[in-house]
């Protein structure tokens, strides 16, 4: 199983993500944002950071990086895609996930552990977890409040696309949403950082069950079918 971690100019969590996936047995490689072929990979991670300086809006310029065209094809074919924090923002800007992430309620940059509740297990990220399971995973963002119109929200609920919720909403996200998937479940985005919750020595190992799920999705041949 081979996972690519995309590096945009300004990404800064790529080593954490690669290290976590390597620890879980995946072969990891870095993919520069100008790459146009992802066909040799089983999964792709868009890491946290500030792609293209987050100028204009987080993810707005990253969406036009050459790799994003290849990523759209990869996702359409059922490849496993995970966007963490800034990666989630990039996925929404690119239209690979619905909705948008706006400034936190309270206008403060939030860097702290949060308790998440698993809401759905039919995604490549949450498949190894159980519904209702609580996970302590840190957040580190300024624009992390998930928002969408009523129609989109109804579709998210209808299709079981809300995969993780905050137990105590820290940022004003609609319906406490911390992470969502696409309809097929192979593309997932979340604001919290599971790759920073890999060891109790560093505060929490609760990210493991999520990334283990992602790694197992890669091993199963990437394509995730409900």
């Amino acid at each position: 199983m081979r996972v690519g971690v995309v590096i945009f100019p300004g990404s800064n969590c790529e080593y954490d993500a690669a290290s976590a996936m390597s620890e879980l047995g995946a072969t990891t490689e870095f993919v520069w944002h100008t790459a146009t072929d992802l066909s040799h990979l089983d999964g792709v991670i868009l890491p946290g950071g500030f792609a293209h300086g987050d100028y204009l809006r987080p993810g707005a310029l990253a969406r036009f990086s050459p790799v994003m065209g290849a990523l759209a094809d990869f996702a359409k074919k059922g490849g496993a895609v995970l966007g963490i924090c800034n990666g989630f923002q990039v996925l929404t800007e690119a239209g690979l996930l619905p909705g948008a992430l706006v400034k936190n309620r309270g206008l403060t940059f939030l860097s702290m552990p949060t308790t998440l509740v698993v809401s759905s297990t039919r995604s490549v990220l949450t498949r190894a977890a159980t519904v209702g399971q609580e996970l302590v995973i840190p957040i580190n963002h300024f624009s992390g409040a998930y928002t969408c119109d009523d129609e989109t929200y109804a579709a998210l609920v209808e299709n079981d696309q809300i995969v993780l919720r905050y137990r105590d909403n820290p940022n004003g996200s609609r319906d406490d949403i911390a992470g969502i998937s696409n309809v097929a479940g192979n593309v997932v985005g979340l604001m919290p950082h599971p790759e920073r919750a890999m060891s109790t020595l560093l505060g929490s190992a609760d990210g493991r069950v999520l990334l283990e799920g992602f790694a197992s999705a890669l091993a199963d041949g990437a394509a995730f079918v409900r």
Binding site: V102, K103, N104, R105, G106, L107, A145, T147, D149, G172
Partner: peptide, 9 residues
């Protein structure tokens, strides 16, 4: 921002 989108600023 569109109507209905929170504008904390």
């Amino acid at each position: 921002l569109r109507e209905g989108i929170a504008d904390p600023e």
